[in-house]
Structures are given as C-alpha cells and as structure tokens.
C-alpha cells in the first residue's frame, strides 16, 4: 500500500517537458511577450482583426511567423485578406466575385484552389499553383463568349495546374504553350479526354509531368502518347489513370 502511494505521488508531479521554454525563460524578461513560444503566440494573435495583422506583421520575426494563420480567410467584412497561405480555396456562384479584390488577395498567395469559376487569371501574377474545378454547366473556353474563365492570358508563372472538369473542350488547350511557359506539372481530370489536345500539350516548353485521369475509357494509343513524349522538349513522364488503373509512359 505504501509503495502504491509513493508511485502515485511521483505520478502526480508534472514537469515542464519543453526544454526550449526553459532556455527561453533564461533569455527573455518575464514582462516581455518574447518569452512565449510560437504556438502560444499564434494562439494569442489569432484574435486580431486582419487589418491589425497586416499592421503588426513587422513587430518582430516571431510575429511575422505567427500572425497569419495558415488556413483561414475571412469575408465577414466583404473583404478577403490573408497572407502567406499555402493554399487558398473558395467557392462562389455565378460571376459575382470582385476580381480586383481577389487579385490583391491572391497576390501574396502562390497557390489557389478554386471551385467553379474565375473570370480571369490576368492579375494573379505570382500564382504558381492552380487547382481548378469546373462544374458541369460551365465550359472552359478560350473564346470569351461565356466570360467564365479565360486562360488565354500570357505571363502566368503557373508551374502546377490541376484541372478538374466534366467535359473537355477540344479548343481548351489551344496555344497553351504561350500562356503557361513555366508549367511543369499538368493534371487533367475529365470524363472524356479529347485526343486533339495532346498536340497542344506537347508544345508546353517546361512540362515535365502530364497526368490524365479519366473516368471512362480513353481512346489514346501508345503511339499517340509516345509521340507526345518525343516531340515535347522536357516531358519525362505521362501517367494515364483510367478507373483506378495506372499506366506510365516515360522517356
């Protein structure tokens, strides 16, 4: 019994397992906010308004590291504000997005995950990664007749492009090499893949990896794909996924 009590006593003690905290305490004054670790600092600053976050970003390096949460955005005031996001994801209906606002928002975020439509990518000059999902009623076209999405804007720095769409338009990728000079990774997920697109894809100057993901059988022969590989300047691998079966082609 007494042994029992003794072991209980030791287990009642709690010790500070954060050795770094101990070190910090020796360095920082007790009345300085510098004493807090990043986790606590991030938690405390998460109650700031977005305006205050921008205003206070240069208080210290710790503030800079922790003041912008990695995941949220806020549109309660009709404003989109965030910074240093890894991924930005949003959904909206119709064309009611204020693209100017969005441009400013996306300027510092290099990755955009977008469901439904964007009217233009013109101003997202720093965007590197785009994950775009288009619903069944929106067609994605170069011609501007529907004003939904226009990828025919040169100067994009996009290196990774993931496109999800129900129907592939055979004109979709016309002259894409001009718009996406740095594109390294292209993934297309669709119901039917249109073989004519391959010709345009093979002209992408920086493309290294192509993934085609179809829900139904595609009419692509080994010859077609090998032709793309040989005519494309940097393409190393093509991955074809049909109904969860993967097939690889490489140089």
């Amino acid at each position: 019994m007494s042994q029992n009590m003794r072991s209980m006593k030791t287990s009642l003690e709690t010790t500070d397992d954060g050795n770094e905290d101990n070190k910090q305490r020796q360095i920082y004054a007790k009345n300085s906010m510098d004493r807090f670790g990043d986790d606590l600092c991030e938690l405390l600053l998460s109650y700031l308004s977005f305006e205050d976050r921008f205003r206070c970003e240069c208080v210290s390096k710790q503030f800079q590291r922790t003041i912008f949460e990695k995941k949220v955005f806020d549109n309660t005031s009709g404003q989109l504000m965030a910074k240093n996001l890894l991924t930005f994801e949003f959904t909206f209906k119709g064309n009611d997005i204020n693209s100017q606002l969005l441009c400013r928002f996306v300027a510092d975020n290099q990755s955009l995950r977008c469901l439904t439509t964007l009217d233009s990518l013109q101003s997202f000059r720093r965007l590197k990664r785009l994950d775009l999902t288009l619903g069944s009623n929106e067609c994605c076209v170069l011609g501007r007749k529907r004003q939904f999405f226009d990828i025919s804007i040169p100067g994009l720095r996009i290196t990774h492009f993931l496109l999800n769409l129900s129907q592939m338009d055979c004109n979709l990728l016309n002259n894409c090499h001009e718009f996406w000079p740095r594109l390294q990774y292209l993934s297309i997920r669709c119901l039917h893949f249109v073989t004519e697109c391959l010709h345009h894809i093979s002209r992408l100057p920086a493309l290294q990896m192509l993934v085609i993901h179809c829900n139904q059988d595609i009419d692509l022969s080994d010859n077609d794909l090998n032709a793309v590989l040989s005519s494309s300047p940097k393409l190393k691998t093509i991955e074809i996924r049909v109904n969860n079966e993967k097939k690889f082609y490489s140089k």
Binding site: M33, C56, V59, S60
Partner: peptide
C-alpha cells in the same frame, strides 16, 4: 508596430 513593441516589451529583430 513600435507602440506594440514598447507596450509588450518585444525586441525588434528585423
């Protein structure tokens, strides 16, 4: 930023 630093005794390491 400067007012925040003074109030919370934060060292400016930039």
């Amino acid at each position: 930023c400067q007012e925040v630093r003074e109030m919370l005794k934060i060292t400016n390491d930039f």
